[in-house]
Amino acid sequence: MIEQSGNSVDPTTFDVGKHQVDDAVVLTVSGEVDMLSAPQLAEAVRAALAETPPALVIDLTKVDFLASAGMTVLVTAQAEVAPPTRFAVVANGPATSRPIKLMGLDNVLALYSTLDSALSRIAEG
């Protein structure tokens, strides 16, 4: 029997992709956001904000697990965003929106269930 190693994608692998949608910078996060990966997310947020984009959206729809360290990064990002930059978080499902709502962070963060809804709200200014 031949074992394959290194070829399969580990579902817990953390990744942050960055792309532009109109005026918004979108950070697409996938995998698990925990105390080991949260600093990488924080650095991606800092790097994106350093460019002073009109809008920054953090898309968590591909996140399998969101620990308190990840939620701290989101709240810190919200605090670091300076006008005129607008900020939104996309979270949908039990792994992301549920813990955010349980912690009451939906009262602090601009939370959307889809990227399209976040982008259209941000476009309104």
Rank of each mutant, 00 (worst) to 15 (best):
V25I: 15
S68E: 08
V9Y: 11
E43Q: 15
G93Y: 04
P11L: 12
N92G: 10
V9R: 13
A48H: 10
P83G: 05
T28K: 12
S37V: 02
Y112W: 11
L60R: 01
A77F: 08
A79E: 14
V45A: 04
A38P: 09
G104H: 04
D116Y: 10
L109W: 11
P39S: 01
V33D: 00
R121I: 09
G31R: 03
V45E: 00
I58E: 00
D64Y: 09
L66V: 02
I122G: 06
L109E: 06
M71V: 01
A44K: 13
T76K: 12
I100W: 00
A67M: 06
D10L: 12
N107T: 14
T76M: 12
E80A: 08
T61Y: 06
L111H: 07
Q78L: 11
V108P: 03
L66D: 00
N7F: 15
R86K: 14
L115P: 09
A118E: 11
A24G: 03
T12G: 13
G104L: 08
D22K: 13
V29S: 02
E124F: 06
S68H: 08
L115D: 01
V90K: 04
R46L: 11
G17F: 05
P99M: 01
T61E: 05
G93R: 08
G31T: 03
E3H: 11
V57Q: 05
Y112D: 09
A24L: 07
L66G: 00
